[in-house]
Amino acid sequence: MSVTVTGTVEHRELGPGTWALVTEQGETYELKDAPQQLCQPQQQVRVEGEVREDVMTFAMIGPVLEVKSFSIVNG
């Protein structure tokens, strides 16, 4: 199931660290397979990807969003 999520990229210090996408509504997604250009703290982005219900992670911060493509939103 493909979804598009818009929000802010954040680095979360859990274990060795992980990348999160936080929407305006306050929902937190864990970014899976996020390319380097996406992983910039406080960057506003629109990510197209798939929520992987069959994946578990050590970060455990919320739904796992596997990144297919993304674009930077000018805010």
């Binding site: 069959d54 994946v55 992670t57 796992v64």
Partner: peptide
């Protein structure tokens, strides 16, 4: 069971 990205599948686990 978890790869470099920190995730793994339920089937593997």
């Amino acid at each position: 069971v978890l790869g470099a990205g920190g995730g793994g599948t339920v089937a593997d686990i």
